[in-house]
Design a protein around this nucleic acid. Structure first.
Lengths: 130, 130
DNA sequence: CTAGTTGCAAAGAGTTTGCATGGCG
DNA sequence: CGCCATGCAAACTCTTTGCAACTAG
């Protein structure tokens, strides 16, 4: 059994409101973004990730969590290592990638866990100006 | 300036010999896989990653390091979340992915940092038998 | 009422840093 | 000989866990 508690609702609605934004447990706790005890934050971040409600990715030092929209389960995510922005790869070619990896490599991609790192064009042009 | 020390050579040749295998700093230290002090292991894992000699990826709890072959800079890596095995995506379609992401999303993939998570066919058939 | 949940504090794991000693060039 | 590298121990950060009080169903 699982209880519907105030803390659970607080955490889910926090991420729901914050769209694509990613947060570490420490950010939430230190800045008091949600009024829930430290251990409980960790417990729910972990539980909600298992339930598929949150998306967990690894930041530089700590795990980052964001809201896992349903569409996100169907596409990959490009994350710029300079500015940190995430782009959702919701284009037609996404299906081709999925098919190739499935048929040729016999591998089923986990779109929630995977992050494609690299540089977005804006950050690259900024760096070239230096 | 940078010195060529015994420790540096030990660490590089250890990873060179171990091909695709990934190791955490703790595995190396606790099992004495390399005869180098704790802090020095961490210092070199970090330094060699910056130099592009090692490939750093995030395991469940700790960073994992493996030897970064030159070919690896040109393709993505599929890693099974069940058995942990890594498959190198060195197929012709890899170029198409690179081109699409570059031209359509204006994003330059970092192949050393990126890991595509999912399940390999062997692990999926094993799980279906349960 | 009963079983799951909370929050505090303590513990644990991974990683970084200060500093005196040692070694490369 | 001068500067960088090493190793130990201490410090730090992120995360998990034990436990008594609390709360949803």
């Amino acid at each position: 059994m699982r209880y519907n508690t105030k803390q659970r609702e607080l955490i889910i609605s926090f991420f729901e409101k914050n769209g694509d934004k990613r947060f570490t447990a420490s950010q939430i706790i230190e800045n008091k973004l949600i009024d829930v005890g430290e251990a409980t934050v960790f417990r729910y971040l972990s539980a909600l990730t298992k339930e598929g409600i949150l998306r967990k990715t690894q930041g530089e030092n700590a795990a980052e969590y964001s809201f896992a929209k349903n569409e996100c389960k169907a596409h990959l995510h490009l994350q710029c290592t300079s500015c940190g922005r995430t782009e959702h790869m919701d284009c037609d070619f996404m299906k081709d990638i999925q098919n190739h990896v499935e048929n040729f490599h016999r591998f089923e991609i986990d779109n929630l866990r995977t992050v494609i790192y690299g540089k977005c064009s804006q950050c690259r042009s900024k760096e070239n100006k230096k």
